[in-house]
Each structure stands twice: as C-alpha cells, then as structure tokens.
Design a protein around this nucleic acid. Structure first.
Lengths: 179, 179
DNA sequence: CCGATCATGTAAATAGTTACATGATTTC
DNA sequence: GAAATCATGTAACTATTTACATGATCGG
C-alpha cells in the first residue's frame, strides 16, 4: 500500500492538510513516482487516523484539517523505507509506448520517436531552468529541498528518454538501410 | 486502459497465447513499463475478442489458445500509439522511496542510498552483459528485437538511478558538513 | 510415475478513477 | 458580488491483486 507510505513520507516533513498533500502529488511526485487524486487521499487519511499512524493537529477555516505523523506512523514509515523490496510493479504509459514501438510501421515509428524526442527535450530544458533558479536562491549550508531532488531526477529521466529515443531512431534507420 | 494496448502491441508481433503474453510481461515489460498478472490477462483477452480487437487463431494442447490482432485491433493500437498524451499517471515504488529520502535521518538515508546504489549497479551490469550477448549473436541487417530495446532502456534507467543516488549522497554529505 | 512447467480459469478483496456534490473564503 | 481557489467529501465504476483451483503434458 504505497499511497499510505507516500502520505506518511510527506507528513514526515511537517503537518499538512489533505488539500496540500493532494497539491504536492500534483507537482513532482505524480509525474515520476506516484499519483493519487484527492478522492483517494481523503478517505486514506481517515483510515490512517483510525490506525494510529497520523493525527489531526489543527482545524482551520473551511473545514481544513492538518495532519501530523504519530510515533507509530514514523516507525511504520522507517520500516517500509528500509525494508521494502528494491523493485515493485511499475506502471508508466509513456515507457509502455516506447516499448511497443516495433508494432508501428517505419514512418509512424519515426514520427512518434521525433515527437517524443521533442517533448522530452522541452521538459528537460524546463527542468534545467527550474534547477538553475533553485540553486541561485538557496541559503548556503542548507541541503536541497524535496523539490530540488525531484527536479534533478526529472531532468535526468527526460534526458534519458531523449537519448534512448535518439538511439532507437538510429537503430531503426540502419535497419531500413540494410534491407 | 493500457493493459489492453499492451496486449495489442505484443500481439502485433505475431500470435501468442495468454500464457506467453503473461511471460512476456514478466521479462522486461513488467520491470519498466507495465505489469499485469495472468488473472488479469485472461479475462481481458476474452473481452478483447468480444470487442473484435483480437481473435483466436489456434487451439493447441492443454487448452492453449493463440490470439492474433484483427484489422480493428491494429487500427485501435495505432491510434492509441500516435495520439495518447505524452505522460500519464506513473506508479513506481522504487522512485517513491528515493523521493521520500528526506523523511529519514542522516545515517538511515545514507544506508538506503548505499543499498540502492549497489543493487542498481548490479542490475545495470547484468543488463550490460545481456546486451553484449544479444549484440554478439544478431544476424547482420536485422534490427534490434523487442528484448534488445527493453534491455537498452533498462540499462540506462538503472545507471540513472546509480548516478542520481550518488549525487544525492554527495548533497546529503555536504549538508551535514556545513552544519 | 513424478515433478516441473504449461495453461487456463474464478472469486473476493483492495486500490484507484471519474463524476457528482457542497460550501467557505479570498481576491479583484 | 462574482470568479477563483480552498477544502472536503461520497458513490459508482473500473482496474488490479491475492488466493484459490484445476488439469494436461513433458522430461527424466
């Protein structure tokens, strides 16, 4: 049950409301690691309270409730972080399409690879700028934030997709030349 | 509904049984792109027959049934390949744990990073050997197989994780030094 | 003939998505 | 005072996992 651990992990940084947690999924986490919608998050938070992993620490305007981890929650998170198997089942539609490339004919495959190379390159560049911004305004001595780690990962993964697709494009071209 | 398209894509290469499709998921696909168990695959194949996307082309021993794509199925696959959005929701537990690293204390984070670096490096090396094997025994003029594409992707992604984790390890170390 | 593997299935439970629903507060 | 955003929820549906279940064939 990774959603539960994702929520515990985010709350480890400090109290958050369901709404804020939902936002955090939307920027960064959902793109590379784990996606969840608010309709899944709110009920899960209730269950986690019932299970003693988190507790309500503040109630604000508009029914806002902030949650924080309990000692049990932190123990559960640590145990999961340190003992979970290295790889679990993966779901990634973009990668799936890369893998099914050979199901297309040559011109379609080329068109798709070109489109992917372009969109991944654009993303990589966007993240590269975003990283430069972050690095320009950190206070010295403080380590990278969550967002900085995520951006670094994102930059590298988009660059990888560009490189892989460029390589695959070359292989496909050679393939045709030899026929 | 990506499972359906994954199955269509695999069947585009030639007729396969549910059992074989299930095996294909297990080596390569499930690790980087999409996971599915046989208990999900068999019912889905039946639905796809009912929807006219695939058909039974052979019945062999032990109740084995081979499926092949229909023209409708190939059209559906192509349309999905060419028009699906560049990025969908992602699920990847290993990456999630990387992102939640800051929820651990320094020594635990270091231990986890070291373990990840080691296991990813081992995987990268295994794939590197596997790639060398494949490249040694291809007939000249024929393009890379599905497995070759997958292995290339896998190698690069494990290497990326090693590099990212090594970078993160350095950042964490600096962080402590400055305190 | 026995163990491994081939080959398919179903049922129950959990996880996740999509659509619907409501109302408060802030900002302009 | 209207639009945007904050903030939470539920219901129905679909997808996925886990566990149970069965039997055929192949290799030694």
């Amino acid at each position: 049950m990774s959603l539960r651990h994702a929520l515990l992990g985010l709350l480890a940084d400090g109290p958050r409301s369901g709404y804020e947690l939902s936002k955090t999924f939307d920027d960064g986490l959902a793109e590379y690691a784990w996606h969840a919608s608010h309709s899944q998050i709110y009920p899960e938070l209730r269950k986690m309270v019932a299970d003693g992993l988190i507790e309500v620490v503040d109630e604000g305007a508009r029914g806002r409730r902030s949650y924080a981890t309990t000692p049990d929650g932190r123990a559960e998170l640590r145990s999961w972080m340190m003992t979970a198997p290295a790889a679990g089942p993966v779901r990634n539609e973009a990668v799936l399409r890369l893998f099914l490339l050979s199901a297309l004919d040559q011109p379609d495959a080329m068109r798709l690879l070109d489109a992917m190379i372009e969109s991944c390159a654009r993303e990589a560049e966007r993240l590269s700028r975003s990283i430069a911004d972050m690095d320009a305004q950190i206070e010295p001595g403080s380590g990278p934030t969550f967002g900085r780690y995520a951006a670094e990962f994102g930059y590298r993964i988009y660059q990888l997709q560009v490189d892989w697709a460029t390589w695959a494009r070359g292989e496909l071209t050679n393939d045709v030349d030899h026929k």
